[in-house]
Design a protein around this nucleic acid. Structure first.
Lengths: 259, 259
DNA sequence: CGAACCCTTGATACGCTTCAACAAGAGTGG
DNA sequence: CCACTCTTGTTGAAGCGTATCAAGGGTTCG
């Protein structure tokens, strides 16, 4: 049988699992190096007004943390919005003693938690750094004042939350009505189009995360994901080589995803 | 075997299914009768400032629609936020020809859609009136201007969306990790505490919706829900009589829900 | 009355998990 | 360097959970 095939240097392997560290010691305290690029990446497509950017910079605090740090805990009330400026993180739950159980992942410029600080309660999920990360915290009270002075800022926060509502609605819908194969086809197609749009050769999707984390996102076991990969490659839809997936039959994959 | 037991007049039965009507003709056009009570019920616990209420009233349009109307369509771009002022509605999907397939229900004072109007695209789900309803529409552009003038209004819209993000996160989490019995126990307990908090007798939960709609909320088939009810009543945890459920062993139910 | 709708119950089938075993790196320490 | 362990991914066998299909009874409405 074919092996994992990582020795031929096809793709970089995802990092190994890192134990969750509790107090998350800061490596260094970088003075604000994040610029306007981060805010436009995170708060919508168009550029922000310079004074809005200045207001954000004034209240933001930046932190560098090592892989494995607990970034957000669902056990303490959250007072800040939280942006992931660099690195990868995972949202999920940490049982009292056991290992971290991820539910979905967040990549470099993206929100870790834009919602729970507004509710005065705890976050719904824990967040753990998968790689070394840089996170940006926005205190809710200060952001609220900035929103009052800059209505456009309020508009963008609202749009950000609306996007998350939309995305979560789709996630819930898919979990209710689509089976594992369909969800995986969806996932694969989503990672397909924004990549190399070269119409000639087959699309190549590199898996940056461990396969068990992909399985967790799809709410299936790693065994099932492994079987799905083999099943699809046997049908000639994809070609799996370690952490590289070549999509051979895009149309057929779309047909499965549309089920 | 025991029958549905509705003839003894225990509880009001839910309405029968009504076919989805396409253009949804308005019954009558009520001039704004909704008061500040609706806005505080929908925009957070504390009372709004009178001028914020006035701003909302100025831009809101009210509509009365009969049961079965299509309130929100995921096929047209949505330009308004939508509040359910009276009656019950269901969110779900309408296949091209088939029947409506609900996913969750919304009750009297609540948001039908507070998010999709901000995104410039279509709504994620369709909404159908289960009973005769009264809905209130808020044009996004006008609401945005009102938010700029009344920062507290922006604060509440943000909190509303944050609540929805939280709720949907929990829904997705439960769908991933909890089985049908656990989800139903959760659902039952959620309808338990806010009701008669009388510590003496057993809690009584009246099912206002059809059982197949409850099943749809739990992402299970009606058959499975029926079996769950019998299973729990055989174990002595609940007592089912038509559309009335008496909770006999609250502690055991909580134990199942905590799984 | 029949027709349409709802709920229930049983038999069966399928999807996915669980459990167990194994192969292949990657880090560690002799 | 090699043995040892830890982690990951893969595969197979067995089993649970839920869906599907089919049948039947109750209620409401025309």
């Amino acid at each position: 049988l074919e092996t994992n095939a990582t020795s031929n240097g096809e793709t970089a392997k995802p990092m190994r699992q890192v134990r969750v560290r509790r107090p998350g010691p800061a490596i260094r305290f970088t003075p604000v190096t994040v610029g306007a690029a981060l805010w436009t990446a995170v708060l919508g497509p168009t550029a922000l007004a310079p004074e809005a950017v200045a207001a954000l910079q004034a209240i933001a605090s930046v932190r560098d943390l090592p892989a494995g740090s607990l970034l957000i805990s669902s056990r303490e009330p959250s007072r800040d919005l939280c942006v992931l400026a660099r690195g990868d993180a995972a949202l999920g739950t940490v049982p009292d003693d056991g290992h971290f159980h991820p539910e979905r992942t967040v990549q470099s410029p993206g929100w870790l938690d834009a919602s729970s600080a507004w509710l005065g309660g705890n976050a719904a999920l824990d967040a753990v750094a998968v790689s070394d990360v840089q996170i940006v915290m926005l205190p809710r009270a200060a952001l609220q004042q900035a929103m009052a002075r800059h209505p456009d800022l309020a508009r963008r926060i609202v749009a950000t939350l609306a996007r998350q509502v939309h995305a979560l609605t789709v996630v819930a819908h898919d979990l209710m009505h689509k089976d594992a194969e369909t969800r995986f086809a969806d996932w694969l197609l989503q990672r397909c189009t924004p990549e190399t749009e070269s119409a000639d050769g087959p699309q190549v999707v590199a898996l940056h995360e461990r396969k068990r984390d992909i399985a967790a996102q799809l709410a299936i076991t790693p065994e099932t994901l492994s079987r799905l990969l083999r099943q699809l490659s046997r049908k000639g839809l994809i070609d799996v080589m370690g952490y590289t997936v070549r999509v051979l039959d895009l149309a057929a994959l779309r047909a499965i995803a549309a089920a």
